Simulated assay, not measured.
Amino acid sequence: MATTAAERQRERHNRKLENGFKKRAFYINEKSLKVLEDYRNQHGLESLDDALNMILESK
């Protein structure tokens, strides 16, 4: 059964909330964004927020 992008995003958002995550918006410079994108790709992660959380948890 196909779902729309909005439905998939809503499901992902609800999963994150159920797992205790909080949604926040923030600004990031290009260099930091590149680091997050590289980390996400190297570790096969679904999103940049997953990459950010892994980096922060490893500190």
Rank of each mutant, 00 (worst) to 15 (best):
M1V: 02
M1K: 03
A2V: 01
T3D: 01
T4V: 06
T4N: 06
A5E: 11
A5C: 07
A5H: 11
E7Y: 05
E7P: 00
R8L: 06
R8V: 04
Q9V: 01
R10T: 02
E11I: 14
R12L: 11
H13Y: 09
N14K: 06
N14C: 04
R15L: 08
R15C: 08
K16A: 03
L17D: 02
E18I: 00
E18P: 00
E18Y: 04
G20E: 11
F21R: 03
F21D: 11
F21N: 05
F21C: 04
K22Y: 07
K23Q: 13
K23S: 08
K23H: 11
K23T: 03
R24F: 10
R24A: 10
R24L: 14
F26C: 06
F26G: 09
Y27D: 11
Y27E: 06
I28V: 12
I28E: 11
N29G: 12
N29E: 12
N29F: 06
E30A: 14
E30D: 15
E30S: 12
K31T: 12
K31E: 14
S32K: 12
K34G: 11
V35N: 01
L36R: 01
E37R: 12
E37V: 11
E37T: 13
D38E: 13
Y39C: 07
Y39G: 08
Y39M: 13
Y39T: 05
R40Q: 07
R40P: 00
R40T: 00
N41W: 01
N41A: 11
N41F: 04
H43Q: 07
H43L: 06
G44F: 08
G44M: 10
L45E: 04
L45Y: 11
E46N: 15
E46L: 14
E46T: 13
E46G: 13
S47F: 00
D49S: 15
D49Q: 15
D50P: 05
D50H: 10
A51W: 00
A51V: 09
A51P: 00
A51L: 04
L52T: 02
L52A: 09
N53E: 13
N53V: 15
N53A: 14
N53F: 10
M54L: 13
I55P: 01
I55N: 01
I55V: 10
I55M: 12
L56S: 15
E57F: 05
S58A: 13
K59Q: 15
K59R: 14
K59P: 02
K59L: 14
